[in-house]
Design a protein around this nucleic acid. Structure first.
Lengths: 186, 186
DNA sequence: GAGTATATGGTACGACTGTTTCAACAACGA
DNA sequence: TCGTTGTTGAAACAGTCGTACCATATACTC
């Protein structure tokens, strides 16, 4: 009895809040501007999420969920040469459409270095890639549970993303990835 | 005439403030706690630096200065094999003593992605490494002004640092660097 | 209608923020 | 001693932050 709950409201708010965080970043996030942009109120944000910390956690989970879906859609199984696969991963991750996601990625990592207690699953997010990439680069791995190849591939991608986002020099970073692909081929 | 100025005070404060930022990070930096830790007052910090923004800029310049000195001291010219040089760079950059510096490095990069206007020389800091590393890996470069090799080497180091700081898995990251060294050797 | 649970708005609290203002003190030359 | 310049403390200002409190509105069952 009583008024029926409306769980869709929270979901709708979460989706729009995730858009907002992807657009504006995590660092300066504040309830009042966020609420204003979402046509709601700080009161309702706390009503739905309990606290800012829980809201942020929900937003990050949602962002990661979106990213995982896109990755699953995009990464095909082992087809083509090593270079083609590597170039595909790089082209997709470094595309302009991924920029907000990449930015949030770096932001969370940096904040996690200062406040590790807030991100209990930070390591998990990194190592999760290994299952995906381990399968993709099985033919250049030293074994079925080779973690070294995925580690190196992801390090190159992340390191070049770091460079690209800081310098904007796409030509140089693209060529560096090609060089890595050549090295890996041998 | 009048009381003589004491420029040493500002220098002393800057040095200790840099220690503090390296220890506590940039994100939550606040004048009152900083002043308390430095046995001074917010009043004096603004007196010496004009504003918080200028103080931060001075601290970052000082941190970069310290880093540059250490790098210059540590990186010898081209001696030993490619693997030895690469392993030396990695061992030095991933050492525990460098952790505060690395953390600040990632923090500045992340903040620069959200507020590029505050870091006009962000790209510069990246490309500065090329002169240093270009010289160190001259024998595997395709030419005297090859920027691709330094870009790739730095991407691997930064990417693995990202991984190491997030997961703490030194064994796996060490092995990934070794794998890269083998690839580069060929 | 009453009863009840959910959903909101408005407002204020206490703790912070960077910065300013006003006053006083300290060290020098004349 | 006096004027001058550099230094410093205390307090306040105007703003923002997350959050709690209180009232009210809404939508349902009985």
């Amino acid at each position: 009895m009583g008024r029926p709950a409306d769980p869709a409201r929270r979901e709708r708010t979460l989706a729009r809040a995730t858009d907002y965080v992807l657009a504006h970043g995590l660092a300066g996030l504040s309830l009042r501007p966020l609420a204003a942009a979402l046509d709601t109120s700080p009161r309702m944000l706390l009503y739905d999420f309990g606290s800012k910390q829980e809201l942020v956690a929900a937003v990050l989970a949602e962002a990661r969920r979106r990213g995982a879906v896109r990755v699953a859609e995009h990464l095909p199984p082992t087809t083509g040469s090593v270079q083609e696969r590597l170039r595909g991963i790089w082209a997709w991750m470094s595309a302009d459409e991924r920029a907000p996601f990449v930015r949030l990625f770096f932001e969370v990592h940096a904040d996690g270095l200062v406040h590790p207690e807030n991100y209990p699953d930070q390591g998990q997010a990194i190592t999760d890639w290994f299952d995906t990439l381990g399968a993709t680069f099985r033919d250049v791995s030293s074994g079925p549970d080779d973690t070294v190849t995925p580690t190196l591939v992801m390090a190159v991608v992340r390191g070049l993303l770091f460079d690209l986002t800081a310098t904007g020099d796409r030509h140089r970073t693209d060529r560096a990835l090609d060089r890595f692909a050549e090295l890996l081929k041998q």
